[in-house]
Amino acid sequence: MKWFWCLFFAFWPIVAIVVCLLAPGNNWWFPGEAASPLGRRIDDLFYMILWITSITFVGTQLVLAYVLFKGASDTEPGTANEKAWFSHGSHKLEVIWSSVPAVILLFIAFYQLDVWAEYRVKDAFPRKRMEAVFERIHQDRQKNDSLALAEVTARQFEWRIRYPGFNADGTLKALMPDPQPTDLYAVNDLHLPASAPVMINLRTQDVQHSFFLPELRIKQDAVPGLVIPIWFEADQQRSYQLLCAELCGWGHYKMNARFVAESDEQFIEYLRQLEREQNEDRVDDAPDTDEEE
């Protein structure tokens, strides 16, 4: 029986590892490659930690299995020693197995700092590249205007999105902190330019939500009372999943939305279309370029 148990404990880590190895092939893995530069760095970090932990896992489980087999064979009848090995520990070993993990852990800790900084620390935001986007889409902005292109307001249970409207001369207005009469609205459908860092202002109308773009590895809580800027950069022009990751009530799972990354022209065209739809008065000959207030 004891051999069965030895095998049992040796067997399960093998199953675990096999499952993990099979996982990517069965699509039990990340929802696609990270689709943003920051996401790729997060993935790299993940894989690095995965390597370290996998080696540790295999190592410790191997040793565990070994000591079990050793213990089982030592208790076979007729083994040399009647008593177990009498040892209260080894100072040297303790030092080794304290300092080696310490070094590895500290390495992990410091290795990740700049990724974190880039994601969250304001000074590390790619401000220059964001401003280049504003140039390209002809946004009419003052120096202190928000870097955000849209304001995403979470509420139970949907994402309400507010874009700035257009000026009379066709340029895009800057996003104001307060709603403006010219603002354009959408729900559960966030469109932003691709291949460049774009920023949104995240807020919530009621309880706490969390803005989660799994394919871009972006997650940020929307905290009641705060307006939190977040930036992300989608490589490809396609639509990405957007969901809520913080329990926000019974309909938490319902906050199904999408983020569409598209070219600058498509983005402007999308806003134009929103403007047209929003000014729909169902009279065919109505000039749809009217500046609405």
């Binding site: 202190n144 928000s146 902190p177 307060d178 709603p179 202002n201 009641p224 009372g225 307006v227």
Partner: peptide
């Protein structure tokens, strides 16, 4: 300018967006 009932969260914040960024990012 400033706050309106349409945007009550703002009242709590009283801050412009730049200030909020301070809160969030500091």
């Amino acid at each position: 300018g400033g706050s309106s009932i349409a945007n009550p969260v703002k009242d709590a914040n009283t801050a412009s967006e730049e200030d909020s960024e301070e809160v969030a990012v500091n």
